[in-house]
């Protein structure tokens, strides 16, 4: 089987592409940094895509709004329809929200927005911190299916506009999707600040589309991918195994397993 190729899409203003590539490479896949204006043919040649963090187009108009109008996004929409996996991290998450790929309801109609961090309307500014998250319906997304719904993991957040809002009529649907939610150290979904650091509805920190192959998350898994990235006071949350990989490696492991199984299906077919 050919080595899995993942495009780490570089928009003007992206700034987390190199560490993201390192994570992809560490799992035995090939991570290529691919510019946003590469040819359709080049972009379509990849097995999966990651939109990394940063400040695409300087967050002009709204975070992710300008990037969502690029031709690249129509290629990603078609790729998502074909079942290819797409992960958006932080600014990548904001871009996916503005594109409508997540939650992907009603033909990618916009059903979700990421607005400024707040505590019941009071602005809480840009947040750079480690937070705990847990998993809801992990089997509903290829990215979360390697986790258990009892897992509670620490992960860094680094954003000013990370408050997930959903159209009221869509909230019940969101509850059925694969998601990660901010929680206390013991795993309780406490809606109050600072457990929920930005005022997100349902404490959502990341959410998948209905099909489960697109995932948008505000926290940075690439900054909690290797054990050495964890601060001393959070090392207690790590397993005792000798592996250098931290718990968030499972996110990309899920992506890798999915692509491998799809390739086998194609080969057999």
């Amino acid at each position: 089987m050919n080595k899995i190729k993942i495009a780490i899409l570089q928009l003007p203003g992206t700034n987390c592409e190199y560490e993201t590539k390192r994570c992809v490479d560490a799992l035995g896949m090939t991570g290529d940094i691919v510019r946003w204006n590469s040819s359709r043919e080049t972009i379509e040649s990849y097995d999966g895509y990651i939109l990394p963090g940063g400040f695409s187009f300087q967050d002009r108009v709204r975070s992710g709004a300008i990037a969502a109008k690029l031709e690249l996004m129509s290629i990603l929409e078609a790729s998502a329809d074909q079942g290819k996996p797409i992960l958006g991290i932080c600014n990548g998450c904001q871009v996916l929200a503005e594109t409508g790929l997540v939650p992907g309801a009603n033909d990618n109609k916009i059903e979700m927005a990421l607005t400024y961090n707040n505590d019941n309307g009071k602005r809480v500014g840009f947040i750079c911190d480690w937070k705990y998250v847990t998993f809801k319906n992990p089997s509903a997304s290829i990215f979360t299916k390697e986790f258990k719904d009892t897992d509670v993991l620490a992960i860094p957040i680094n954003h000013g506009e990370g408050c997930f809002i959903f159209n009221d009529e869509y909230v019940d649907d969101v509850k059925t999707l694969g998601a990660i939610q901010y929680c206390t150290e013991s795993g309780d979904i406490d809606e109050s600040y600072p457990t929920n650091p930005n005022g997100s509805m349902l404490n959502i920190a990341g959410v998948a589309n209905k099909k489960g192959n697109v995932f948008a998350m505000m926290p940075h898994p690439e900054r909690a991918f290797f054990k050495k990235q964890f601060p001393k006071d959070l090392e207690k949350t790590l397993s005792d195994s000798k592996s250098e990989l931290g718990p968030w490696a499972l996110l990309l492991k899920g992506m890798k397993n999915y692509i491998e199984s799809e390739k086998i299906k194609k080969d057999v077919g």
């Binding site: 108009v61 709204r62 709004a65 300008i66 969502a68 109008k69 996004m73 129509s74 929409e77 503005e98 594109t99 409508g100 790929l101 033909d107 990618n108 109609k109 916009i110 059903e111 979700m112 927005a113 990421l114 607005t115 809002i165 959903f166 159209n167």
Partner: peptide, 16 residues
């Protein structure tokens, strides 16, 4: 009014 990736830009009706 933004409705999808090819329509609208200035306003995201979910949050604005």
């Amino acid at each position: 009014i933004t409705t999808n990736s090819s329509k609208g830009l200035l306003v995201n009706p979910v949050s604005e």
